[in-house]
Design a protein around this nucleic acid. Sequence first.
DNA 1: AGTATATGTTCGGCGTTTAGACAAATTCAT
DNA 2: ATGAATTTGTCTAAACGCCGAACATATACT
Lengths: 407, 407
Amino acid sequence: MRKINPHDFKVARRGTSREINRQIALNLIRAHQPVSRADLARLMNVRRGVASLLVSELLDEGLIFEGAVGEAVGRGRRPTFLYIDSRQRCVVGVDIRASRTYIMITDLMGHQLGVVSSFQTNKDVETLIQDLTRRIKQVLGDYKEVGACEGVGVVVPGMVDLAAGRVLHAPTLSWRDVNLREPLAAAVGIPVHIENSGKACALAQLWATRSDGLTAGNSVFVSVSDGVGTGIVMNGELLRGRHNTAGEFGHVPLSIDGPRCSCGATGCWEAYVSNLATLSRYFGRDLSEPGPRDIESSTFTVEDLIARARAGDAKALAAINSTARYLGLGLASIINAIDPARIYIGGEITTAWSLIEPIVRSALRERTLTDFGGVTEIQVVPAEEHPRLRGAVALVAAPAFAAPMVA
Amino acid sequence: MRKINPHDFKVARRGTSREINRQIALNLIRAHQPVSRADLARLMNVRRGVASLLVSELLDEGLIFEGAVGEAVGRGRRPTFLYIDSRQRCVVGVDIRASRTYIMITDLMGHQLGVVSSFQTNKDVETLIQDLTRRIKQVLGDYKEVGACEGVGVVVPGMVDLAAGRVLHAPTLSWRDVNLREPLAAAVGIPVHIENSGKACALAQLWATRSDGLTAGNSVFVSVSDGVGTGIVMNGELLRGRHNTAGEFGHVPLSIDGPRCSCGATGCWEAYVSNLATLSRYFGRDLSEPGPRDIESSTFTVEDLIARARAGDAKALAAINSTARYLGLGLASIINAIDPARIYIGGEITTAWSLIEPIVRSALRERTLTDFGGVTEIQVVPAEEHPRLRGAVALVAAPAFAAPMVA
DNA sequence: AGTATATGTTCGGCGTTTAGACAAATTCAT
DNA sequence: ATGAATTTGTCTAAACGCCGAACATATACT
């Protein structure tokens, strides 16, 4: 039950119905391909004639193509199968992180076309844009056969002003109000979309073809890494808020008297469960404070810690378990506040999921208000799936499939 | 950018465009009345002919009526003004609270028609339904001239299963899985809608005619009373979540090691800012614990406390200021998580708003991540506006104006 | 009284869904 | 092999609703 905004609405024009049905057909092909015109008509509950017309429009625009004639199940004429035309178009995804920047090239469906390449992030924006431009052009040159590039999606660990295409604040990069989209778009000559990485990850899961709309349409993505990023999807739409800064659950407190967080406040969830927090717990001191740091603690990663825990290091296990507990307590807040159908969780710590899940679950049950809150589906997204890069790609690929703005 | 759910969509039929434009016209009349057909055509950016047809359809259905001929601004034929027809239909709103239950009767626009009546809440559901039925019938008898009753809206301080019309859990009423909608509807012979009070309050603000769609469409309602209830509106739609339990920010912790909360967990925001928490702070002991309680502390209310604070009682002021600080810290979490354009806040403590606002603001700035987060608009909703009852009414009146489900 | 301007209605045009018929293609039964 | 049954995809006429323009009505200014 949505309210029509009397100051910003869209009246239905002569072509609106068609536009709606066109997008539905496109999405159904995307979700069910291979699919015939007759299948489509059945799925949409319209006459085959209508489906046929919609299909020929999509064919004309090159969004879909007719594949081989399929095998008939029973008797009767064999259907001609339709597919999303992801050939001859590609998308480049870019994931800018504090230490390294990653690049991936995919087709329009988000299927990875080559290997993920990466290079060290230069925090000077102009240099980074130069580096990026060179790399993107190189990748596009390497994969000439996949056709024209539809756009470049860039995700950053910080807040983004979508309208202006600027990064408002990215603490780990020491960026404040950085103009990123325009210069990069000008340099590569391709449209550029930028977005916060947590939001993009949530978007990628929403648009993943394997996702069922019901759960993915009401979900939260939690990424636990150097910081904690979250993206919220409700009613099939990404929650942006007034300034596109919604979803910062990482800075909701567990204890306002808790440890200092990178954001300046104290006791944020992030200050309990970030990789640095987990390592600090293991080394028994606050690694975020400036001060002497031995060689081990400066190169030692959470993955190393997990390896030690699996090898039987009790102290390592205790540090991880502690993080698991705080993870569960924070997830409980998300569940109480948002009540998602599913939570996606990514980050290094999830490689230890089999170890920590029982602890996360029990902490979660401890603080969720309802019984069904306690059993909220949690799905680990492994790093190999490159959730952030997929998010970057989704920024470019998803709009073509989105529902038209209506009413 | 919404994703079309491939398992639950609505194709555009021949009449869909009409339906969309009809609702837009209805909403524009609601928002701009008195308004002429020609005004409507200009607002919608369609030909007068189309507007005229939409209007005659709405006239036929009795949703609007033609008022007196208006005065022309310049020269030319004078317009005939159109109005939402809120005559001959009424709505009853019911607010069930732990101590008392309130009833109000309004027209379809939510304009109060008579005084708010109330009676003591009997926590036995069957008795309460009997009481309610008698009272509702009495009120409808008293206001016969306002015509047939379109429906009864009921708000309860607890979680509601919308599909089943049951109250899943209402702690202050000691209700668990109580069947409320069906029996009440059967008893009064009128459709009944039930909802959580926080959600309903948010809905009422969204649909308030004076609200501008942009801010009210991205807002959070926070009600601070015996408990803390919140309702979230995003993109002009109430956030329900998977089980209609979204929005329980009252049980997001400030400190997991904090005081025990009524929900069983510890350190919930509610445990810091509820009326009981504020009073406990004043009396210097935990009033929620069973034990000896002197006469004063059992009848003393937050309003009394505020009166003392205004009269110069330093201890009272300190207790209120403390609550103000915690209030701000919790609101900061909401802002970080949701980034609403506006926060509505109701409850007894807001009668001291002039005293506490600076403290709330400073606490809020302390924990909000962005500068614009710190200046998020906060609007006090005074008790005299009966936000919960308005919410109850909105449950019945709003659906007629909602955007049609499309795509 | 005549002209200019605004409101509200009417009518043909056109695009889109709707319903149904038809040709083409394929399998199964005879 | 042949015909019936079935499925796919196309095509046509009808209904519906937006689009554009013309027209009647009503009012004010000159």
